[in-house]
Structures are given as C-alpha cells and as structure tokens.
Design a protein around this nucleic acid. Structure first.
Lengths: 156, 156
DNA sequence: CCCTCATGTCAACATGGTTGACGTTAAAGT
DNA sequence: ACTTTAACGTCAACCATGTTGACATGAGGG
C-alpha cells in the first residue's frame, strides 16, 4: 500500500490530486514507459546489461551489417556514448564487427547467436506487455493507441 | 558538427526493419516518451533545471505540505537522489520547506509562486502535446489510449 | 605523396542515480 | 524522567550514462 514502498515495481500510480484534466494522461505516459521496460530491464540486469545495450542490440538485429556511424544516428546519441556499451557487447561476443574488404572505412556490426537470443528475449518482454494491453482493448483500441502515439512521437 | 543529424528532435523514427508485428508499437512508445517530454525539457533547460526537478515540482504542486519522505516514495528514487535537486529548488526559492510545530520530524514542502509558474509552464508543454494528439483522434480514441496505457502502467 | 575528411577511440567531465555512514529528533519502554 | 529505538534527513563516495574535445587512422582526390 501507500507506505511499504512497492519500490522495485511500478511505484504506485495514482494518489496524486489532479490539477488538470490531462494530468492523468501525463502520469500514464510516465508509468507506461516504466511499465513496458520494467521486466526487460530486470532480465537484462541479470546479464549485467541495461537499456543502452538493449537499444544497440535492437537496432543491429533489425539492420544487420550496420556501420557504427549509422547506429549512432539512429540511436541519437554521440559516438563516444555508444562506444562503451558497444565494446562490452563485442567483448561478450554478442556482436561481431568486421571491416568489409571494399569498405575499410566502416565496421559492420552483426549479432551473434547469443546476441540474437538476448535481443529476442529482452524485446519479447516488452512486446508481451504491449500484447496484453492490446488484447485487452481489441484491434480498434490498439489502432487508436498507435494513432495517438504517432502524433506524439512526431512532435518535433 | 557531427552529421547534421536531426539530433535535437525526434531522431527519425521508422526506417528500421520490423521483425515482429509489435515492433512498431514498441518504437512508438520509445519515441512517444521523448516526444512528450521534449519541449518541456527544452524549456526547463533554459532555467538550468531538468526532469528530476520537474518531477519534484509536479508532485509538490499536487500535494502541498508533502513531507520529503512521501515525496521519495512517490518518485520511487532514494532519498539521497532526491536531495540534490531538492536543495537546488529550495535554494532557488521555487520551493519552501518548513517544519510544522507538532510534526518536527518532517519538513513540509510547498511551491512558491515562482515554483508554481515553472511547474505550470513545464507541465503545460507536456499537456499540449497530449491534447493535440487527443484532439486528432477524438474522445473515443483518447479513452482507448488511456485504457491501453493503464494496463501497461500497472504491469508490476 | 600529401591533404582532407569520415570514422573511430581515448580522456575529462557533468549529471542523475546508487549505497553506506552519520547526525538529529520524535516516540516508545522502563 | 531517561534511555533506547527508529524514522528523517544530510553528507560523502561511487557508478553508469551521457556530454565535448583531442586525437589516431585509413581512403580518396588533388
């Protein structure tokens, strides 16, 4: 309940007075993000990995032989920030990097079998949460959710 | 300049191959979170504040005279982590803390006028993004969005 | 051959979080 | 009343993830 702090988990939503009609939606976005990533993060933590590692694995899984430069662009963080998690993944042999013969300038990244497994499982946890929610509201609700998110996501 | 990369903003969604039907939804959640908080964060940055400061202001605005202990519980982070941003807010006089006469053990937090203004404006940016999206899909769509998010958020 | 520039790496630093140790103060036992 | 206990809050040390700046390296064009 309120006290006892459910910490590890969803930190108890609700309980805050709403000053505006959209406050509830605002809080839902916050807790929704946490809720979706929670189980994946817990799994990743058991492997000594975390969100940035997962993001790299996710992208490389969907674009094999991607160069580090392209990866950086997609992730939207600096190449220096990518460097450490990337090296860890290489060292753990979850990724391979090879320079192609004609494209010596860039290294091409690819998942190993172990990397694929971890990516699938971590992303799977996130998809599971989404799937359950979508099942609960039906296809029309799911479509509406995506429509809303698309507008929000494109708010550049 | 690195790449020109649309950096500041939404880092170009899409473009990734989809391995699963729910990949699109998964990416939308990621970019949706960024999209909602982006303009608020930019505003806060001009004041030398950031997300943790905003979260504190948000909660205190909705529960005046909250104790630091309760604040910690709601934010779901350690009291030590709350300490620095909290002190900054006090020092900047966006918050006041007083010990009530009969409850000497805890300090009661409250927004100053300046604090209220900042909280309203920052949260307002976030609500604006949500409002636009909700307007786009109509009340039924908004309700569906909230239903989905509620399931996801409660995924403890 | 050299100059340039994309690519990648290394070092230094900022920030937001963690845990551990500690003071302080209210409440509970005796 | 006095002591013990424990909640509340602060300080210090540390870690992870990001930033910027400086630099190495390798390809390709004059």
């Amino acid at each position: 309940m309120q006290k006892t702090a459910s910490h590890a988990a969803g930190l108890h939503r609700a309980s805050l007075k709403k000053l505006h009609d959209l406050d509830a939606a605002l809080e839902l976005m916050y807790y929704g993000w946490r809720g979706m990533t929670l189980s994946a993060d817990q799994y990743l933590a058991t492997l000594g990995l975390s969100r940035p590692h997962h993001r790299i694995l996710y992208v490389v899984a969907r674009q094999p032989d991607i160069s580090i430069g392209s990866l950086i662009e997609i992730l939207g963080i600096s190449k220096q920030a990518v460097n450490r998690p990337l090296n860890l993944l290489l060292q753990r042999k979850l990724l391979t990097s090879k320079r192609s013969s004609e494209q010596h300038r860039s290294k091409l990244l690819r998942l190993t079998e172990a990397g694929k497994q971890i990516e699938q499982r971590a992303s799977g946890y996130e998809r599971k949460v989404l799937r359950e929610a979508f099942d609960r509201v039906g296809p029309a609700g799911a479509a509406a959710w995506m429509a809303v998110m698309r507008v929000i996501a494109d708010n550049n």
